[in-house]
Amino acid sequence: MTTPDNWRPTASLQALRERAQLYTAIRQFFAARGVLEVDTPVLSHGTVTDVFIDGFSTNFAYSNSGHNETLYLQTSPEFALKRLLASYQTSIYQLSKVFRHEGFGRLHNPEFTMLEWYRVGLDHHALMDEISDLLKALIGAQQTERMTYQLAFQKYLNLDPLSDSTQRIAEVFNDCHIDLSDEYPIDHDGMLQLLFSYEIEPRIGQQYPCFIYDYPASQSSLAKINRDDPRVADRFELYFKGTELANGFHELQDAAEQRKRFEHDNRLRRTFRFEEKPLDERFLGALEAGIPACAGVAMGIDRILMLKHGYTHIEQVLAFPVNRA
């Protein structure tokens, strides 16, 4: 964009006011529930190993160590918040900017606002109850729905994501005419994710926000494996009107297991010819010391604003999207 007008904001004054009001409502909600607002670094030595999440990095030339150090912009405050949990064992939240090295689109800006919170003593279902209360307070959603990941695939694609073979998934994938350019092969979870995005996401949560839970263990991320069914993890996501709004876990507390998952991520990164990431030893140190049993969730606040006020493009709720920043 080189138009002479590109110094101007893309959000109206009204949209700026709506954002300010939303922040106030969020802070009131947590103040009433005794959840402490905290502020952790956006710039940090550690980063995530997630195969498909990349942090921006920069060079810190003034470290007390005397060496140049790589610092990362946070893709979520998760590791820092869990280090606080390990130290102070109390429910906390953070409302702040996060950064992901990704493209810009109707629902995406590489810098966006995230609300992330951790509730000591709650499991993921109790946390979903609290999220429902928050959605009622923020966007007036009168109720929410819940469906397992397995049921969603059975209902909309006649496919069992937990027991069907990769070959059967590939058949359904081809039947859905997801015509993929064929430079790289797509794997089992990759096909499930695309099927979910193309065939399920547009059909769930149209009237009320919908939680999808019990994700396959292969997509467990930082969630506990389910005690009763080891094929699934205690992970959920939230969808409303075709938009992914939140991702949450009954949090994994086992440091050795977490380290294995990070190492597994890096092995996958190698197969995709992506750069491997250093493990965040300060975060793993906190897990080793012990975090309390808790559930946590991260929510995209720009998208909440869009849904609340009927905006169709994220730039309408951002003062300056990346192409004007």
Binding site: F52, I53, G103, H108, G190, Q193, S197, S221, E244
Partner: peptide
Amino acid sequence: NEYVKPGKGQAFNR
């Protein structure tokens, strides 16, 4: 052209 990027998933252009 639509940019598709689930939070933890791969990024695609549809």
